[in-house]
């Protein structure tokens, strides 16, 4: 009788422990902000691989994709200046590739912008994210690091069409509606 009682208590304890472990494991599962599984089905903001060095990524190559939400950003004029506005939910994912990339190797990392103005971590209305495929982890960059560079997209800059009209491009260097043409390294560097 006593042994049966002890066994029952032991089973209950083991059961509770398993449930707790299960709940704990479930609660730790992170939901990624970047839609990493589908981004390659999206359109690229630039037709080619960007192979010229830039601050932030230096000599690494880049390919940039934009989610369908951002194909047609809102464009308004105010005070003689044009303002772009990407809808909430827009994602722009930049593949960072090794200069010796053979077309099939996985990217070294993904850096992404997710339009989510209501998020307290957002800077300029965007979440700035780094995703490392090897670890499967992503990190939201709350420092000014990414946005500091991308703020230059809102004024004349050396990339793409160079934004000579000083448009507010919503921190995006290559907005889809701008016919920037093939991107080449600027000869003035």
């Amino acid at each position: 009788m006593r042994n049966a009682c002890s066994t029952a208590i032991l089973r209950i304890l083991v059961g509770i422990t398993c449930i707790l472990i299960g709940v704990s494991a479930c609660s730790k599962k992170e939901t990624l902000l970047l839609r990493t599984a589908e981004y390659r089905t999206w359109e690229k903001t630039t037709p080619d691989i960007l192979d010229y060095p830039i601050p932030g990524h230096e000599d690494k190559y880049r390919r940039i994709f934009i989610s369908p939400e951002g194909y047609t950003p809102g464009i308004t004029a105010k005070g003689g200046r044009t303002y772009y506005s990407f809808p909430a939910g827009t994602q722009i994912i930049k593949e960072i590739l090794d200069p010796s990339w053979n077309g099939t190797d996985p990217p070294l990392m993904l850096t992404g912008m997710v339009k989510k103005p209501e998020d307290p971590r957002a800077r300029g209305g965007w979440l700035w994210i780094v995703y490392v495929p090897k670890t499967g982890k992503e990190m939201v960059i709350t420092e000014e690091f990414c946005i500091t560079c991308h703020a230059n997209a809102n004024e004349p800059h050396p990339y793409g069409d160079k934004n000579r009209k000083n448009e507010f491009r919503d921190y995006v260097f290559f907005p889809p509606s701008v016919d920037s043409g093939p991107v080449k390294q600027d000869s003035s560097y």
């Binding site: 060095p53 601050p55 004024e155 800059h157 050396p158 560097y189």
Partner: peptide, 11 residues
């Protein structure tokens, strides 16, 4: 910054 790269280079 990108706008600095004209003088200081992008590397």
């Amino acid at each position: 910054l990108p706008k600095c790269t004209g003088c200081h280079g992008p590397d």
